[in-house]
Design a protein around this nucleic acid. Structure first.
Lengths: 244, 244
DNA sequence: CGTCCGTTTGAGGATCATCAATGTCCGTGG
DNA sequence: CCACGGACATTGATGATCCTCAAACGGACG
């Protein structure tokens, strides 16, 4: 595993927060879905805090599994290299997202930073050990993975759309609903490049560009500096998102 | 939840087998990844064996979570209904596949049988309870879900292809590699209809038909009765599968 | 101020969706 | 036994959309 970023060891930290969703609720309606303070601390005791600059590979596909990561700050992308050399971005990763679960001891995606990131790095054996000892914690992981499974399915639905503008609108909508993607004051942050976007949406770079132009020209969304977007015609935006 | 099939209670059964993949291996190279006899029996004690005829809804999206299922025999499809009324098939389910994991207490997909099926039905509370008590078993579930996550990503890659014939070839290749999909003697079983296929591949029904014709005409695959396929030019088939 | 990288815009060709018609299989009923 | 009907699948023609190739544009940085 290559690592160009310097790693710093910090244990005096609030600890990892995993974006889990509840599998069920208690009778009183409170959620069982979040980590307890104890669990957070337990994870923190296993974790090393590492920092990577933008555009850095965290690990490569087929690389040997060594650690699991949880994003603390910043944005990353998980992608696969296709035989032709093209890339398909499977997911963008935001704070609270977990990644690095492998298959047959090897990572299946390559993960690269988009912005500067701070990650919790947890040795996989230690994590596996802890999960075996703490079923409740493991249950949260199960919920988390299940949620990612849904995300993947939504991604497939998005890609199945034929209209580029609709795909883009759907993606913006997903970002907007992700409270960790960093949309502020109605502005949706787009830290990734047009190429990253194209590889996620399954479009060519030019089509993405034309799609942004189209949304802009039709007065549905405005873009600023290429890395922020704002919905200005909510009704038509939602109509476009649901037009499939 | 509707149920048109008659349910039979059988406990004198080998018990559920979940297609899991190993998360890691023991030092001696043996797999930790499969259910122990004890775990199988434990699951079996919770499970009811139910049978459904073809084209039957097992549960609907947004339906209240009640049970988790594991396919024992037969093929099913999991899909979502889109606002336009179109459907997108998220996955086909084969023996050993688990389904019914919900979000916020509601199913996210509708699951319908394709052929006659036999399912293990496990009440979700009982299962959750058992998972909390048996971390090793839960670990297998975690592995299983992780594997399904990969499948979903592969699905997204498939759908991102522009050429219909390539998508179909890729799907056939996936079926071929799935030892539970029932390919025998080089013949790949296709129990689902062309419409099901189209909804999985993100194509129109007609395009699927044209894709099968193209593969047939080019001498790469032959189809029989519309529900079985056989690769006759392996080299060109693989080339097509990897041409993306 | 010039270069480099990322983005935008334009023109032409390829592919799929749609609409419509025809063809095939299979169970039903005369 | 054969004719009919319906569900499913195939084939054809047309239009819309995206991809590719290509060129121009813009900002960041030395």
């Amino acid at each position: 595993m290559e690592r160009h970023g310097e790693a710093e060891l910090i244990h005096a930290d609030a600890g990892p927060v995993i974006r889990g969703i509840e599998f069920e609720r208690n009778a009183d309606g409170t959620s069982k879905g979040l980590l307890t303070e104890t669990q957070r601390r337990g994870l923190a005791s296993l974790a090393t805090l590492v920092t990577f600059p933008p555009r850095t590979i965290v690990y490569r596909e087929d690389g040997e599994l060594s650690s699991i990561f949880i994003a603390k700050e910043g944005v990353l992308k998980a992608f696969r290299e296709l035989p032709s050399g093209k890339r398909r971005v499977a997911a963008f990763l935001f704070p609270g997202d977990m990644f690095g679960l492998a298959e047959n001891g090897r990572y299946v995606n390559t993960v690269q930073t988009v912005t500067k990131v701070v990650l919790y790095q947890i040795p996989s054996e230690a994590l596996a050990e802890m999960l075996r000892r703490d079923p409740e914690l493991q249950f949260q992981f199960l919920c988390k993975i299940t949620h990612e499974l849904r995300q993947g399915q939504r991604h497939a639905i998005l890609i199945a759309r034929k209209d580029a503008a609709g795909r883009l609108a759907m993606f913006l909508s997903m970002l907007e609903q992700n409270e960790h993607a960093g949309s502020q004051g109605g502005w949706i942050q787009l830290p990734m490049s047009r190429t990253d976007l194209a590889e996620y949406l399954g479009l060519s770079l030019e089509s993405v560009s034309r799609a942004t132009s189209a949304l802009s020209r039709r007065g549905i969304v405005i873009f600023q500096g290429g890395h922020a977007a704002r919905v200005i015609d909510r009704a038509r935006f939602e109509k476009l998102v649901n037009a499939l």
